[in-house]
Amino acid sequence: MSGPAALRSEEETMPAAVAVTDTESAHIAPAHEPPAFGALVLRWYRLNRERLRAIVVGALSLLTFLIVWHLLTKYRVVFFVRFTNVPSPLAVYESFTRAIHDPKFLMHILLSCRRIFIGFSLAALVGVPLGLIMGRYKLIHEVVFPVAEVLRPIPAIAWVPMAIMLWPSNEQSIVFITFLGSFFPILVNTLHGMSLVDPVLVRAAQCLGARERSIFREVYFPASLPHIFTGLTVGMGVAWVSLIAAEMISGQYGIGYFTWEAYSLVQYADIALGMIAIGVLGLGSSFLIRGGGRLVMPWRST
């Protein structure tokens, strides 16, 4: 607002609606001339200084990590922990260049990704709708919740023997364990999101003629989406943890199996390569989910 005096005079001479758009829109979209290129760059720099610094510091930090790793392995430091057999970054890089031309290594990665994809997708397809329905209908919540609460604290790895008994093939039991790992975080977060839906929004929808199904689709679901995506992100992390554990114990193929096999075959560089591959895959998949979240919830990005 441009001051009370100006406002008052506007009110008396113009229709109120017009006066308001003028004063309020000035706040949001101030009209200014297109600035020169140099000024634009400068302004961009000033606005993004923080982020630029974070990128530079992040890169330096990673570089320092590599150098420390290199020095520790080069001089075979033994100080509580033993770096005698730990592969150097260069050795790992070497085995990486070999591995990317090796179809077997790529198959390991592809198989792990496929297991994650199937296990995680199933968990999302079951967990999200179940959470939504449990959040809406008390009776279903009362029936399902106690069982879920008993099964939830059991780590997915503890399911390995049971999974082997339950499923006819090794592949299926690994997917099942991945599914279990991500299922509970997704379910719990969806439920949490449902419990936080603002009842006034539900009432607003009712006053606009929305029936049960529309309220579910237009209010409960979008209102819970932020928490659903939190659940998906956490679930994806746990899915990888469970997958790698399952692959190490019962697998043939898969990046977890590759890492364990490297240890058995005394190929130390491949251990680190397997670990880094797992890290990169985990990072990539959580990026995908975050990107998906931004796509599905455009109102949350500012």
Binding site: V200, L201, R203, C207, E218, L225
Partner: peptide, 17 residues
């Protein structure tokens, strides 16, 4: 509740999405 009676709330209650 029905659409025959429009309601305006103090907390605005617009759908943020």
């Amino acid at each position: 509740p029905s659409a025959e009676r429009g309601m305006v709330f103090q907390q605005y209650s617009l759908f943020p999405w």
